[in-house]
Amino acid sequence: MDLEEQGAIQRLVESGQRDRMVVVLGTPTAGSTRMVALTLTQGDPSYAGPLAGVPLGLPVYHILEDEVKAAIAAEVYEEEIGPLEFVLDKPGIMEALRQTRAGSGV
């Protein structure tokens, strides 16, 4: 995950209201989903950025998750996500999230 972005998110979280925050991802692959989810829950796995060793523990969801979709107005979801639901590797992305959550307890 981009180092500058790690810093920006860290500053935002430290500025307060952390308990109200939730992350929604639009990552295209299982690999990129895992990287971002790990970074924002357990800390930067590459140990290169400001979040190295900083477990923010933010709740992280992906826009393709059925539980997220259920919260969104159906016509908006159809327009903005539409065919991407079956074009992107949804099963792989779901599995990456499951593994990350199992590892972090979030």
């Binding site: 972005e5 929604v24 933010l58």
Partner: peptide
Amino acid sequence: LKGRLVLAL
């Protein structure tokens, strides 16, 4: 998501 502060990545 209602009332939550969303980080859209």
